[in-house]
Design a protein around this nucleic acid. Sequence first.
DNA 1: ACGACGTTTGGCAACGTTAACAATGGCGGC
DNA 2: GCCGCCATTGTTAACGTTGCCAAACGTCGT
Lengths: 369, 369
Amino acid sequence: MSSSEEPRVVHPRGSGGASEVPEARMPVLADVAQLAGVSQQTVSRVVRGSGSVARRTRERVEQAIAELGYRPNVAARTLVTRRSHRIGVVAANSSLYGAATTLAGVQEAARAEGYSVSLVMLPDLSPASVQGALEELRAQYVDGAIAVVPEDASQEAVRAAEAAFPCVLAPGLDGAGVPDAYWAEVAAAREATHHLLDLGHRTVHHVAGPSDWAESRARSTGWRTALVERLRTVPPPLRGDWSAASGYAAGRRLVDLGASAVFVGNDHMAIGVLRALAEAGLSVPGDVSVVGFDDVPEAAYLSPPLTTVRQDFTEIGRRCVRVLLGRLHDHVVEPGEVTPSLVVRSSTAPPPALAADSGAPGTADATAG
Amino acid sequence: MSSSEEPRVVHPRGSGGASEVPEARMPVLADVAQLAGVSQQTVSRVVRGSGSVARRTRERVEQAIAELGYRPNVAARTLVTRRSHRIGVVAANSSLYGAATTLAGVQEAARAEGYSVSLVMLPDLSPASVQGALEELRAQYVDGAIAVVPEDASQEAVRAAEAAFPCVLAPGLDGAGVPDAYWAEVAAAREATHHLLDLGHRTVHHVAGPSDWAESRARSTGWRTALVERLRTVPPPLRGDWSAASGYAAGRRLVDLGASAVFVGNDHMAIGVLRALAEAGLSVPGDVSVVGFDDVPEAAYLSPPLTTVRQDFTEIGRRCVRVLLGRLHDHVVEPGEVTPSLVVRSSTAPPPALAADSGAPGTADATAG
DNA sequence: ACGACGTTTGGCAACGTTAACAATGGCGGC
DNA sequence: GCCGCCATTGTTAACGTTGCCAAACGTCGT
């Protein structure tokens, strides 16, 4: 319909030829303006919803926009506004539940605020690569960036980049100091440890994540704090890398150590620990109690269902966006508190000595092969 | 250094005042040109690496670029070239391993090709929301899009959008027909089922994903094919939604049905199935054999370690990018084959009747919990 | 030595939008 | 009935880059 006339002349750029196929150019402001019989500026005002436009005029313009299927060209807008309405996100290229879910939260919140998201996933989180990613993002002229990189050295890189353009660290760290999210995790880890101690365990072993991750340190700190508060001995923590494989390795050590209670830095590693214990013929929670962290969706369906700390990563992601967007508009936003909560399932119980008064270790395991 | 003079005059746009703070504008082509004593055009040529520039000139320009920290403005470049060098990705807002890993592959490959990635994550995969996401992406003037939406109705939406701008469906479907990836999954599911039959199971039950997902249908088809090939009865498949919770529900049904072998549509659901079986006091693989699909990193550490089909989602993501970029440059790229492979672990074994020669066929609740 | 030719460089005009300012119209107050 | 004000609309000039064209430069063959 309406092949009445080409709204605009063919520009010499095309390729000079006169008998050129129209090739369906995207309509631009000028096309709408011509169709509606107004100036570009008026159309622009209607599109942006700013300025005052007479009711009748607006309707006419909207009609023209609909008819042409006009979409504002973000590149042109960005060029003149110096605002891309895009934020960058740099995240680790891992299947880690926390990072993935945080990303989802960031995406959702950004979209809700009319911002689009540019993603850079990194195979490794070295400071150099994080810095490179941030540079890349800046070169794309994003308005700001969110870095889901809880690893220490990389956070330094983010801080450095912050001077050049607005960045927010996903765990909730801001430039000023230690974030609420950090202390919330410490508190939650402490609570989880207390839960185990309350059940009667003399002490609680710990499988920690990489030592240079803020989250890992927060959880370890909470664990240690609880132990110290109750005057228990603090066994040296075992190290993992968040993966089930590393949890399995740690689990085997725990068997050797004769641990009766373990607080594991995340659920993935807890799965590995569970496996190692099962292989050793130890039952959970009969012989050993295990607590994880994150509450991945599968946690309730492990054998046994895992007691763990639920962390609302989606909300963390949303808050990052809120903080970043706040910074972009020059008003400070308090990150606010995100409180993880302990979810008690079936992987924790009193230690064998208490459960059956003279219980011999290594009793019933549900999944004997 | 070099506070000699402002490279460019303050534009009236600024705010008219004469004693304005320089406010650290980003350097532009003109600044570099002035510093290097050449024209903008020459700088542009150096930046793009196209056209011929004398060696000495290029060095001078590069020097100036480095000194100023110049970065080309992508918005301006996009405006004039009509190429944003960005691709959009729409994916489900789920923690599904497959989708997340595919996304990583897409990101990696795109980045390697000099493309940035705009991400839209959807809470639901309704055709309307997928279509909306695609529209949104198009409004952002991405060069093309990759849709990681294996759900049927949504794929229709993608096909429709394809007319407007280049889209690729992540599972590997292309406009022409059924993709290699689809048949590869069928073959793998068939192989997994044969594996169970070869162990001596009379038939194999199946926990399928949502019926309107292509991947789900592929896996179901493979399972059914294997059964038919061997002239076995085909039990009605149970439906899940990919989640461990739904797998658990299906697992309880399987217990009632007295299944001895199960092929589950993905590992997450398999975790739920494992849990249901354990709760019923059935041992895996002693009483029931279970095969999953995807090979999530935790699969090897479940109790028991899960026999499953490994799918290389990262590679699928990479191929999507290759196909899309190919289409953008007007040369067709064959998606090529991605072959999933069966990984046999400890969750499969001969059925009880064969293992213990005189085992009662029906129930076998040998290990009461 | 001269013209043809290839290499290197610069000038100009877009790309599609928004900001600032100017111009037009209608309205009420005096 | 005239003036000034507000609401509405139009005009102009950027934003920073690239594509096309032409000019300047040097080299080579005859």
